[in-house]
């Protein structure tokens, strides 16, 4: 930790009633915390998926115009949301790592990437399977679909770049540049349906207007979205712990942790 960061850290911990957030920026304190958090997200994820699937297929009625093909959105919309949110989280951790030089931030970012890439793929895949019966085409080069495809390439590019470099510190920084610059694509995806005349429909749910769908369908979608959140957090925490073990294998805290294992 350099001196300016140390000063900020001291100031934060000195604040009355304040938590020293920098404490959790160190791998040796985050590792056990992450371990305790995993079941707190994994079990709710399973429960929410079960309830979400039940609502999606047995409670939500058949749509008057789209028939049962609309049931794809119970996966499609949460997957698309996660694909964008995870990318922003990745860029956020990279920026934090660049500013404070915290190695855990880069590990978080690297743990997020595969999960984000999977959600992006699923958003595209389920979109294609919905588009075929609804639009008559698996794929069209409209702004929403194209920018989401670019997001997938950004994830894959980031992962390939980080994996290709031998020096982890250099890989962190090179990857961070891609992640941060690529973040500009996220608002482009989100607003693409407003900025351009796309075949893809506008937002079904937004902060500023009433949802454009029946409340039970919305409910199913939101439960599935919560499930996707909980699942993603659990899976990313497991992955970040694996990355921590690999990258910190020669440190004292890993040695100590192994020592204390029963």
């Amino acid at each position: 930790m350099n001196s300016s960061v140390k000063a900020v850290s001291d100031k934060l911990s000195a604040a009355p009633g304040g938590i020293n957030w920098f404490k959790y920026a160190s791998p040796q304190t985050f590792y056990p915390l992450a371990g305790r958090l995993i079941p707190l997200f994994a079990w709710p994820a399973l429960l929410l998926f079960a309830v979400g699937l039940y609502v999606s297929f047995f409670v939500a009625p058949t749509d008057a115009t789209q028939g049962d093909s609309y049931r794809i959105i119970f996966i499609h919309v949460p997957a698309a949301w996660m694909s964008m949110i995870i990318y922003l989280a990745m860029a956020f951790w990279c920026a934090l790592g660049m500013i404070f030089n915290t190695r855990l931030s880069f590990m978080m970012s690297q743990a997020l990437a595969p999960t984000g890439a999977i959600w992006t793929f699923l958003a595209l895949w389920t979109g294609a399977l919905w588009g075929k019966p609804t639009w008559g085409a698996w794929w069209v080069w409209d702004a929403r679909l194209t920018s989401e495809l670019i997001l997938l390439f950004l994830y894959l590019g980031y992962m390939a770049l980080v994996a290709a470099m031998d020096d982890p510190r250099r890989a962190d920084r090179a990857g961070a540049v891609v992640a941060i610059v690529g973040a500009i694509n996220v608002p482009i995806i989100y607003f693409s349906v407003k900025w351009w005349n796309t075949l893809h429909q506008g937002a079904s749910v937004s902060m500023t207007s009433a949802p454009k769908m029946a409340s039970i369908m919305l409910m199913g979608m939101l439960i599935m979205a919560l499930a996707a959140w909980a699942y993603s957090i659990a899976v990313v925490l497991v992955r970040v712990r694996a990355i921590m073990l690999e990258r910190e294998r020669n440190t004292d805290w890993v040695a100590q942790m192994l020592e204390n294992r029963p």
């Binding site: 058949t62 028939g67 049962d68 093909s69 049931r71 794809i72 996966i75 499609h76 997957a79 595969p114 999960t115 999977i118 793929f121 699923l122 895949w125 389920t126 399977l129 919905w130 075929k132 019966p133 699942y231 899976v235 497991v238 992955r239 712990r241 694996a242 073990l245």
Partner: peptide, 29 residues
């Protein structure tokens, strides 16, 4: 309602991805 291929194609691939990811992170760890 005639959309079985599309609906189940979506859910099946999602399930496979989620399952594969869970197995893969646990093995990695």
């Amino acid at each position: 309602g005639g959309y079985g291929l599309y609906v189940w194609g979506s859910y099946a691939v999602t399930l496979v991805c989620v399952f594969a990811e869970v197995v893969s992170v646990r093995r990695q760890f």
